[in-house]
Design a binder for these strands. Structure first.
Lengths: 318, 318
DNA sequence: ACGTCCGTTGAAAACGTTTTCAAGAAAGTA
DNA sequence: TACTTTCTTGAAAACGTTTTCAACGGACGT
């Protein structure tokens, strides 16, 4: 009897007791499929991500999970996505199983995902053209501005020979970060900034480090596409006897927890990714609870330079 | 018409075409709730975890997600669990929404979770008493043996003054690791091993490091409950001018990706956590596909010492 | 040409809930 | 006492699928 479980209308006290006793004796748990088939709500949030590995995503998940749990929502996660076709099948499999969707697809433009419009969706760190933002929320952060800021900081420290270790091919955020690097150098009138192929993992940084070691003259400032890349770079350079930050300054991107605990501590660009995870779920909750609210989010959060110990004035090398 | 979408029986070719065209024109996607209500299968795997933060869990998730995706299963994740009551409500909310369940509950014994027996369940790194293993699969790893192995390695390097930075209170795996430490010291006849309160995060290691710095005589070998703790310890000791491994050797636990990229590289105990994630999902898939197979898994995987550069012979200090 | 069998197809039952509908009982009012 | 209103409760409809059932038509064999 659904009335007693959900307190939906008045029931005689003796009957209520009998039903409750029977329910707990049988270990009765309502079937959520039947429930959400009828009620058209599932109590879940879907997260479509490119990966789940690394601290960037684990922080994002942690933020999302915290507020989801507080509101008794579960998280449905689908990851490991490179191609648009994989995205589409994931979208299908998630559709109608959740009440809201968070999509982080730095490699794919959302219209290729053919998402249905009838489910609240928040895009995070995903390239959404202005004309496609009508029905959806968009949370981004200033990738290009971050690198630009970092370059400017290094310029002020006297650096003139720059190198950028790029992120993965085809990823929108990586491209933006590289763009910020080029723009900042252009503004400063520096023409010989080097961009090296890289990626988002330690190994990519280590590989780039070996190329940097062979360069002559060697750059005095290296920016990496993210913290893991920077950390791999740092370790490899140190292993080759290079003094960081004495000879080379390094700046990462993301400010993952580990960045604070390298030796020396990594100077990096802080992205509030855990807070973004929280905010994204909160946003979905709002849209679920007030479906007729027409206002949509479209924010680009600032990225803050977190100065630690892998950056120093260039004076010593000149 | 379900017959054409699922190829369940012969249909005239012209009708099939017409149905398919109509379906794609309307953007028809079958409602998964209605589907699984009837078919009693959902195409999802549930993961009940204590957290999702940090590389340990992100590696575990990556492994699980890889094989789940290859088999077109989605992952339903419920985390942030401290208390048994939270676990129970999560179990309820996941029940019937997934075809299999992975439970990692180092803080709770499974019988307090009142899990239903009718869904395949794999316990990972969870204390399951022998008598409760009849219907479930259990994958563990040798926590005690790991620390024991590490202590023995350090003993061979000549270390005699040991310190252990413990994990979180109440966690089964942390207790096992501490037990291994005590046992190994007892076997060696060393009575003055120090156990410090700690935790699973960088900060816990850093805090413990400050206590170690005040100790006199200072230990020459420090084991940490996990890698993050060890890394926090390492950074803090280095910051205080302590030479690692010259003055103090450090060994972590888990072998998360970052452990390879500290400076110096962290000696640690390798837990194949990504493979465990894969194996757990594979196990569930097997049990879903062959429900009548009575054999149950009950394995304790070995933990391997991964020697890097935070450990050295004690000679110099004697 | 007639009977049988197989391939095809439409209708209906089932899955486990919630919600609606209507009926019945109890209580209050004239 | 009779009528109306409110409270309670059982039955039935609905949600969107899959599967089963039965019927229909055609093809094949005798």
């Amino acid at each position: 009897m659904s009335r007693v479980l959900n307190n939906t209308c008045a029931v005689a006290e003796d009957k209520r007791l009998r039903v409750e006793k029977a329910a707990s004796a049988l270990g009765y748990v309502p079937n959520p499929n039947a429930r959400s088939l009828l009620m058209k709500s599932t109590g879940g949030m879907g997260m479509l991500l490119p990966h789940v590995s690394g601290e960037f995503f684990s922080e994002f998940l942690t933020g999302a999970d915290n507020v989801a749990k507080d509101n008794d929502f579960f998280l449905l996660i689908s990851a490991s996505h490179g191609k648009a076709s994989e995205w589409r099948s994931s979208v299908q499999s998630v559709y109608r199983r959740v009440d809201g969707l968070i999509v982080m697809a730095p490699q794919v433009t959302p219209k290729r995902l053919n998402l249905s419009q009838d489910i609240p969706t928040v895009f995070v760190n995903t390239p959404v053209p202005e004309r496609d933002r009508s029905g959806v929320d968009v949370i981004g952060f200033d990738n290009a501005g971050g690198t630009r800021q970092a370059v400017e900081y290094l310029l002020n420290l006297g650096h003139r020979r720059f190198c950028y270790v790029a992120g993965p091919e085809g990823a929108f955020d990586a491209a933006e970060r590289a763009k910020g690097f080029r723009e900042a150098l252009d503004s400063a009138g520096i023409r010989d900034g080097v961009i090296l192929a890289g990626g988002y993992n330690h190994e990519d940084g280590a590989l780039a480090a070996r190329k940097i070691l062979e360069m002559d003259p060697r750059p005095t400032a290296v920016l990496a596409a993210n913290d893991y890349c920077a950390l791999g770079l740092l370790t490899e350079l140190q292993g080759a006897g290079v003094d960081v930050p004495g000879e080379v300054s390094i700046i990462g991107f993301d400010n993952v927890p580990s960045a604070a605990f390298s030796a020396p501590g990594l100077t990096t660009l802080g992205v509030p990714i855990r807070e973004i995870g929280e905010k994204a779920i909160e946003r979905l909750l709002h849209r679920i609870r007030r479906p007729d609210d027409p206002v949509r989010l479209s924010v680009e959060l600032p990225v803050n330079l977190v100065v630690r110990d892998t950056t120093a004035p260039v004076l010593r090398q000149q």
